[in-house]
């Protein structure tokens, strides 16, 4: 996956949501130009979605491309007038879950190797220290709360959009976010004691 379409050919990436929804309707009507523009606009959003979570960050680009294919197969399920991004993120989330499931079954068949041996050959990490600290901070949260918090605060989605994307109810999303804030607050206020307390709660 190393050959890429020129972004100029597919238009600007930061298209507003109503434009995306209009492009989606043209996509459903098999308009090739609109399809290319829509795919070009969705790709950075999807990469950002996968890169915002540490466990899918290394494969964010591959998962984004996989999601585009899934979006194509599911394009008849988008309803005109409904918000597009929760629909896209719901499919992306399913891609992410499938990725974990595949990894889990693959790991079950693999022989474990000595991590210290691998470390000698590993490239130095390229992530910024802020990103590592952010990941460490979020590692205090259970997976479901981490996902909700990332969608709300990093991807900038509303509670209703997160509920739609995670097949949940707005009430459940609010509850998870509240619990996540409480945990993070305790971690940020007492950095040394907070991490163990938060893990116990999780």
């Amino acid at each position: 996956m190393d050959e890429h379409i020129d972004s100029e050919a597919i238009g600007p990436n930061n298209v507003d949501v109503s434009t995306l929804e209009a492009l989606m309707l043209h996509y459903q009507a098999a308009d090739a130009a609109a399809t290319e523009r829509l795919l070009g606009a969705l790709c950075p959003l999807l990469i950002r979605f996968f890169a915002s979570m540490p466990d899918t960050r290394p494969v964010a680009d591959d998962l984004a491309q996989d999601t585009l294919l899934r979006i194509h197969r599911a394009r008849q399920t988008y309803r005109p007038g409904e918000p597009l991004l929760p629909w896209v993120y719901a499919i992306a989330r399913h891609t992410r879950i499938d990725h974990f499931r595949r990894n889990r079954s693959r790991r079950a068949k693999e022989e474990p190797v000595d991590a210290a041996d691998l470390q000698k050959f590993a490239a130095p990490p390229q992530e910024s220290s802020n990103l590592r600290e952010f990941d460490a901070l979020l590692s205090n949260l259970p997976e479901s709360q981490r996902e909700v918090l990332t969608m709300l605060k990093v991807l900038g989605m509303t509670v209703e959009e997160v509920a739609r994307a995670t097949s949940s109810t707005p009430g459940a999303v609010k509850q998870k976010a509240h619990r996540a804030y409480e945990t993070l607050r305790s971690v940020l206020e007492r950095p040394s004691q907070g991490q163990s307390t938060a893990k116990e709660r999780a």
């Binding site: 996956m1 050959e3 890429h4 379409i5 020129d6 972004s7 597919i10 990436n13 090739a32 399809t35 290319e36 795919l39 070009g40 969705l42 790709c43 950075p44 990469i47 950002r48 890169a51 915002s52 960050r57 964010a60 680009d61 984004a64 491309q65 585009l68 294919l69 194509h72 390229q126 910024s128 220290s129 802020n130 990103l131 600290e133 952010f134 901070l137 990332t150 605060k153 990093v154």
Partner: peptide, 25 residues
């Protein structure tokens, strides 16, 4: 600073793969 760090550009291509676009088209 911690939260903003997570929103930094993460590198890599942010464009759809040509093969994927062609398959879809």
């Amino acid at each position: 600073q911690l939260l903003f760090g997570s929103a930094e550009p993460l590198g890599g291509a942010s464009r759809p793969n040509a093969a994927v676009v062609n398959t879809i088209l």
